[in-house]
Computed example of a mutant assay.
Amino acid sequence: MKNNLYKFSLLFLSLIFLFACNPKLNNSVSETGQHETAVIEIKVQGEDQAESNKEVHFDPGMDLLSVMHDNYTIQAKEGLVEGIDGLMANQGQNKGRYWKLIINDQMSQKGAKEIIVKDNDRIVWDLTDDWDF
C-alpha cells in the first residue's frame, strides 16, 4: 500500500513539474511577469482613416517583426515586411507602393527584424509611394 502511494505521489509531482515548466502551457507574459505595450497603426496613402490602430503587448527585448507576427497576418521576405493583413506592397492597386516604417515620429532606417520594440513606442506602417517625411 505504501509503495502504491509513493508511486502515485511521484507521478503526481512529475506531472505538476511537466506542466509548470512547459512554456506553451504556461500563460505568464514573460519570465519576469512583465510585459510592455506599444501602439501600431497601419495606414494606406490617400485614405483619411487608418486601416488599423492597435495597442499590442509584448515581452521585453522582442524585435518588431516578431511583435507583428504575434498581432497581424504578416507576409515577409528576408526580414522585410511585404504584406500586413492582406495589404500587399507593390501589387495590384498598390503597385509602386511600399511599406514606410515610422517609429516615434522618426522614419526607420532598419528592417523590422533589426528593431527592438520598447515600451510605449508608437509604430506606424504606411503603405505609400511618398517617401518624404
Rank of each mutant, 00 (worst) to 15 (best):
M1V: 15
K2A: 13
N3H: 12
N4R: 10
L5I: 15
Y6M: 13
F8C: 06
S9G: 11
S9N: 08
L11E: 10
L13S: 12
I16L: 08
L18V: 12
L18P: 14
F19C: 02
F19H: 02
F19R: 01
A20Y: 11
P23T: 01
P23V: 05
K24W: 09
N26K: 00
S28F: 04
V29T: 10
T32D: 13
G33M: 08
G33L: 09
Q34D: 10
Q34F: 15
E36W: 06
A38W: 03
I40A: 04
Q45C: 03
G46R: 00
G46I: 01
E47W: 09
D48A: 15
Q49P: 13
Q49A: 14
E51I: 12
E51M: 14
S52W: 05
S52L: 08
N53W: 03
N53Y: 06
K54C: 04
E55R: 09
V56W: 03
V56D: 02
H57R: 08
D59W: 04
D59M: 15
D59S: 15
P60R: 11
M62G: 13
M62I: 04
M62C: 09
D63K: 05
L64F: 01
L64H: 04
L64R: 06
M68Q: 11
H69E: 12
D70E: 13
Y72G: 01
A76M: 07
K77I: 15
E78N: 12
G79M: 05
L80W: 11
E82S: 10
E82M: 14
I84P: 00
I84F: 08
D85P: 06
M88N: 07
M88R: 14
N90S: 05
Q91W: 09
Q91I: 10
G92E: 04
Q93E: 14
N94S: 10
N94A: 08
K95Q: 10
K95L: 15
G96K: 00
R97P: 03
R97H: 11
Y98Q: 06
Y98M: 09
W99H: 03
L101G: 02
I102E: 04
Q106L: 03
S108F: 00
S108H: 03
K110D: 15
G111N: 08
A112H: 05
E114A: 08
E114W: 00
I115C: 06
I116W: 03
V117S: 05
V117W: 06
V117F: 04
K118T: 10
D121T: 01
I123P: 04
V124R: 07
W125I: 07
W125H: 07
W125M: 04
D126C: 11
D126N: 14
D126G: 07
T128M: 06
D129Q: 07
D129Y: 01
D130L: 00
D130E: 09
F133V: 11
